[in-house]
């Protein structure tokens, strides 16, 4: 159960990271995450290296460290899972801080915490420096099929509208004295959801009619192009190239 997605992560700014074309940043983050995931977990120094790289990116992008740390809370459920691991994993047991724990489990917990946190921080930096709309353009430039991009664009455009309806329903329920206390109140919440679905779907029908009346034929008109120059690709490659070097070193150096 993730936490609610109450607010977007984007932080407006004009840093060099903000100005890079979205497709360059997407590829950079994907390669970075792939390098992190493929690194053997015993090379603790490699993960320290990755963390330094991300810290450098955050500094260049002027994203405050506190903001990044607060947003990593989203992976909390899996941290709980990771912390349980040393106690339930099999294999040789070692005594650590007076507790008998599994050595393999400790490594497993470290593996999940390190790789998961690095992945979350990389995603946070991407989302903090790239407007959602531009991220979609980047996804489109990377040859994602048009219909998927369109669905995502509509979802983004109307997510706040639909969430707003949900909020107004909650206020309406509350002002009539409703407070969800236990399972027996599920019926009221479900009726809200049913109404929300009808409103969303019917809004979709109206949007479609409005689009057809403006000449929609299944394709969206071209959005403004976001081309990337070789220099921009090179600049964006700094992070994944450094990460790939660390990963390669981690595999070669015992």
């Amino acid at each position: 159960m993730g936490a609610g997605h109450a607010h977007r992560l984007y932080l407006p700014g004009a840093s060099p990271v903000h100005r890079l074309p979205p497709q360059c940043k997407l590829v950079a983050v994907l390669v970075f995450v792939a390098a992190v995931v493929a690194t053997p977990r015993e090379r603790i120094w490699a993960f320290a290296g990755y963390a330094l790289l991300l810290a450098a990116v955050a500094a260049v992008a002027r994203v405050p460290y506190g903001v990044v740390l607060r947003r990593t809370l989203i992976e909390l459920p899996f941290v709980v899972f990771a912390l349980l691991m040393p106690f339930v994993a099999s294999g040789e047991r070692v005594t650590w801080l007076g507790l008998s724990v599994s050595e393999a489990g400790l490594w497993g917990a470290w593996n999940i915490l390190a790789k998961g946190t690095l992945g979350v921080v990389a995603s946070i930096l991407l989302a903090a420096t790239t407007e959602p709309r531009l991220l979609l353009l980047g996804v489109e430039r990377l040859r994602m099929p048009q219909p998927i991009v369109q669905i995502a664009a509509f979802m983004l455009r109307y997510a706040d509208v639909v969430a707003g309806e949900l909020r107004r329903m909650r206020i309406a329920r509350a002002s009539r004295g409703f407070e969800a206390r236990d399972v027996r109140d599920a019926g009221v919440l479900a009726r809200s959801l049913g109404a929300l679905f009808l409103r969303s779907y019917e809004r979709g029908e109206r949007v479609h009619l409005a689009m057809v009346s403006r000449g929609y034929d299944g394709r969206m008109p071209a959005w403004h192009a976001v081309g990337a120059t070789a220099a921009q690709w090179t600049a964006a490659a700094a992070l994944p190239a450094a990460a790939a070097l660390i990963a390669a070193a981690a595999w070669i150096i015992p």
């Binding site: 509509f154 979802m155 997510a159 969430a163 309806e165 949900l166 236990d182 919440l189 929300l196 479609h208």
Partner: peptide, 30 residues
């Protein structure tokens, strides 16, 4: 050809529906 707007709005609905927490037991919610 209604795929994009209708699937998009349904996706927005699913997204919003996941924000609706319902109480499970003893202070936890799902």
């Amino acid at each position: 050809d209604r795929t994009a707007p209708l699937a998009g709005l349904t996706a927005a609905f699913v997204f919003a529906a996941q924000m609706l927490n319902f109480p499970v037991a003893a202070g936890t919610s799902g």
